[in-house]
């Protein structure tokens, strides 16, 4: 049972989503080889080689993979697939884009968002925004799966897997890259942060995220998140959205500020270790999942929280 793991590389750096998906991949079938596809990805490849448990690292360093376009990348995965019984990747935007395409080319039904590996072909996955958990067994000859990274810890480092350069596959030439607008941030990534503070519609404008949330996030070393309502209104960027159709997170501490707690939002954060809710409506459904609830106006509570954290630091 050999497994091919699609590495997640952002800005030339290996994302820790890879190490989390590796944990699931090792449970599905070993050896696990890691595919690092991109342009200028030597550093990411050597980081992948250090993840413990990796068989070897396959590096496809080619302009065709520079922007993660699904069409050429799926063709590459399909070309490599005969040597593998399973192809997996983390549930990131990039892998969710390409893996179903590869699955269809292999005539395989993808198992999306696995949260538990019960056997080489048997998995748990959430449906209905996490309100039900399905146990599914695949009858396909090959497994194609995405891994919900919040459900798996990262593997350790300390490995020294061999790195092998591989040739690019033929590009179907139906797509091309035009441009991107990617935010650069020194903050921890939402999906790997230990602490997250998220704001909702009650933030009222983008500047309030800066004025009220950011200082607290800085003190806690936290990532910032948002509800769909806050993103739709333009208060926060799209990739901050936590929820059923945004990012799924499970930090040690999740602080929801001015978020009502719709099931679609809860779907993305209810597995957090400790949940704090700050909301002025004591009936808000978010309090039903919060370990610590504070009924308060966020515009008073957040500056106070900032001061209290400053005191704590002294």
């Amino acid at each position: 049972m050999a497994t091919l793991l699609l590495a997640e590389v952002a800005g030339g750096v290996l994302s820790d989503m890879t190490a989390r998906a590796l944990t699931a991949a090792l449970e599905i079938g070993q050896p696990v080889d890691v595919l690092v596809a991109g342009q200028g990805v030597a550093a990411a490849a050597s980081a992948a080689a250090q993840l413990s448990g990796v068989g070897k690292v396959l590096v496809a360093d080619d302009a065709a993979y520079a922007h993660g376009l699904a069409e050429p990348l799926a063709a590459l995965i399909v070309a490599l697939s005969p040597a593998y019984d399973a192809v997996v990747g983390p549930s990131t935007a990039a892998a969710k884009n390409v893996l179903p395409r590869a699955a269809a080319l292999l005539d395989v039904m993808q198992v999306s968002d696995i949260t538990k590996v019960l056997g080489p072909k048997t998995f748990e996955r959430p449906i209905y925004a996490g309100n039900a958990i399905q146990t599914v067994e695949s009858s396909d000859p090959k497994i194609v799966a995405t891994v919900r990274t919040a459900s798996f810890g990262a593997t350790a480092t300390g490995g020294a897997a061999p790195i092998e350069a591989i040739a690019a596959a033929a590009d179907p030439a139906v797509s091309s890259f035009v441009g991107d607008a990617l935010a650069k941030s020194d903050r921890p990534e939402l999906t790997s942060a230990k602490i997250i503070i998220s704001g909702g519609r009650a933030m009222q404008k983008a500047e309030n995220f800066k004025t009220y949330i950011e200082p607290v996030a800085d003190k806690l070393g936290a990532a910032m998140g948002a509800s769909r309502a806050a993103v739709d209104a333009g208060y926060a960027p799209n990739d901050w959205q936590v929820g059923q159709t945004g990012k799924v997170v499970a930090p040690d501490l999740y602080i929801a500020v001015g978020i009502s707690g719709a099931i679609q939002h809860l779907a993305g954060m209810k597995d957090s270790k400790v949940i704090v809710a700050i909301n002025k409506d004591e009936e808000a459904p978010i309090f039903q999942v919060a370990d610590y609830g504070l009924v308060a106006d966020l515009y008073q509570a957040l500056p106070e929280l900032n001061d209290e954290l400053a005191k704590l630091a002294r």
Binding site: A10, H67, L69, T92, A93, A94, N97, V174, S175, S176, F177, V178, G179, D180, A181, L182, A183, P237, N238, D239
Partner: peptide, 14 residues
């Protein structure tokens, strides 16, 4: 224009 991790990406398709 696509919503991706980190922001937005624009692709051209035939």
């Amino acid at each position: 224009t696509r919503e991706v991790d980190g922001g937005l990406q624009t692709v051209r398709l035939k």
